[in-house]
C-alpha cells in the first residue's frame, strides 16, 4: 500500500481557559491517502474544525496545548519551525472556510488577494501572479475572470466568493485541500455546484480533499471515507457505504435520522438527537455520548470505548456488541429512514 499523504497520531488540542481546560480535540488518529476524499462529520464543538486548523498550523501555541503527531509527506508538522510551516501552509496544504462573505478581505481586489497567495510562495512578478489568478478564476468557473479579478469581494455573490476562495486555495496546486464547512453559508442550489466543483477540481489537480461538515447528507456522494466526530474524538470511521448503509455507532444513527430526504417517501418525522453536545471542559465519563444514547448500559458510563476496527476499513467506538448494533440499526434506524 502507498504511503499516506497525511497521518495524524493521537492528536490532542486543549485550550486552557478561566473556566477550565477545554478538550477540543482529545486524542484522534487517522490517515488520508493521496487523492482521496475524507468527510469529517460532527456537531458544532465536536473538534472537527479545530483538528484541521491544527494541521494547518493556525492554532497558536500561545492559546492551546497541542500534543501528538501530524505527519505530512513524512514530516511532523507540529515540530516544524514557523517559517518552514508557512511554506507548507497555502502551498502544499490549503484551506477554505465556512463563510465566504467574511473570508476575503473587503478592502482588496479579489484578483490581488489570489495573486498575493501565489507570491507568498513563488518568486514571480505581480503581473504574472495576477494573470495566474485570472486563470484560476476561469478554472473555477467564474465568467469574465479578467473583469472579476479587478472587482472587490462585495461585488461577488456568496457562491462566487466561495469559488474565488477555492481558486485561491488551489492556485499553488496543493496536495491537500481542507474545506471547512464550504457550503454551510450558501444556498442549497449553490451548495451542490460548489461540491461538484470541488469534486471536479480534485481530479484535475490530483489533490486529496477533506470536507468538514455537520451535515451527513452533504458528504454522501462526494467522499471515499467518512469519519464521525463527537466531543473531540472520532467515534466512527468507514467508507461512505459503511457509514450510510451499516453504521455501527448510535451517534451516527442519530445523524442519519436527522437528515431530510426528498428522494424517498418519508416514513416518519425527523428524529433529532436528544440533548445537547457535552461541555468540553466536563466531558462525561466513559463514552462521552452515553447521556444522549438510548442504548447506553452500565459499561458505557465508566469505560471509554476505543475506536476498534470491525473489518479492514470500518471502525466504531461503542461498547454495544456487533450483533446488537446490526439488529438495532436494521430494526429501528433503517426501517424509519
Amino acid at each position: 500500500m502507498a504511503e499516506p499523504l497525511l497521518e495524524v497520531r493521537n492528536l490532542k488540542v486543549h485550550f486552557p481557559t478561566d473556566d477550565g481546560l477545554v478538550r477540543a480535540v482529545d486524542g484522534i488518529s487517522f490517515q488520508i491517502m493521496p487523492g482521496e476524499t475524507l468527510g469529517v462529520v460532527g456537531e458544532s464543538g465536536s473538534g472537527k474544525s479545530v483538528s484541521f486548523l491544527t494541521v494547518m498550523g493556525l492554532i497558536s501555541r500561545r492559546e492551546a496545548i497541542i500534543e501528538g503527531e501530524v505527519i505530512f509527506q513524512g514530516q511532523d508538522l507540529l515540530k516544524l519551525p514557523p517559517e518552514e510551516m508557512r511554506h507548507i501552509r497555502g502551498a502544499r496544504i490549503s484551506m477554505i472556510f465556512q463563510d465566504p462573505m467574511t473570508s476575503l478581505h473587503p478592502f482588496y481586489r479579489v484578483g490581488d488577494q489570489i495573486a498575493e497567495a501565489i507570491r507568498a510562495h513563488q518568486k514571480i512578478s505581480k503581473k504574472e501572479a495576477f494573470d495566474q489568478a485570472v486563470d484560476m478564476l476561469r478554472r473555477v468557473g467564474i465568467p469574465k475572470p479578467e473583469e472579476r479579478a479587478r472587482q472587490y469581494p462585495h461585488e461577488f455573490s456568496g457562491g462566487m466568493r466561495q469559488r474565488a476562495m477555492i481558486a485561491m486555495a488551489l492556485s499553488l496546486n496543493p496536495d491537500l485541500l481542507i474545506a471547512d464547512e464550504p457550503t454551510t453559508a450558501l444556498d442549497v442550489t449553490v451548495q451542490a455546484q460548489i461540491l461538484d466543483l470541488i469534486d471536479r477540481l480534485r481530479e484535475e489537480f490530483n489533490a486529496a480533499v477533506v470536507i468538514i461538515t455537520h451535515d451527513l447528507g452533504v458528504v454522501a456522494e462526494h467522499c471515499d471515507h467518512i469519519q464521525v466526530m463527537y466531543a473531540g474524538k472520532i467515534v466512527e470511521y468507514g467508507t461512505a457505504e459503511d457509514i450510510y448503509y451499516a453504521p455501527h455507532h448510535p451517534y451516527t444513527w442519530g445523524l442519519l435520522g436527522s437528515i431530510t430526504r426528498l428522494d424517498e417517501e418519508s416514513k416518519g418525522r425527523l428524529r433529532p438527537i436528544k440533548g445537547l453536545p457535552p461541555s468540553l471542559i466536563f466531558v462525561p465519563p466513559g463514552c462521552a455520548f452515553h447521556p444522549r444514547c438510548p442504548y447506553a448500559f452500565d459499561r458505557c458510563r465508566v469505560e471509554v470505548p476505543e475506536l476498534l476496527p470491525v473489518d479492514g476499513h470500518h471502525a466504531a467506538a461503542c461498547h454495544l456488541p456487533l450483533e446488537d448494533k446490526r439488529r438495532i440499526f436494521a430494526e429501528e434506524v433503517a426501517a424509519r429512514a
Binding site: 494547518m56 493556525l58 514557523p82 508557512r86 511554506h87 507548507i88 501552509r89 497555502g90 502551498a91 490549503s94 484551506m95 472556510f97 463563510d99 467574511t102 473570508s103 476575503l104 478581505h105 473587503p106 498575493e116 497567495a117 507568498a120 510562495h121 476562495m165 485561491m168
Partner: peptide, 17 residues
C-alpha cells in the same frame, strides 16, 4: 479575529504581512 485574517494566514503570508 476576523475571518479574512485567518484566510491571510492560511495563504502562508508572514505574520508581519
Amino acid at each position: 479575529g476576523e475571518d479574512y485574517i485567518r484566510t491571510a494566514r492560511a495563504k502562508g503570508l508572514t505574520e508581519r504581512r
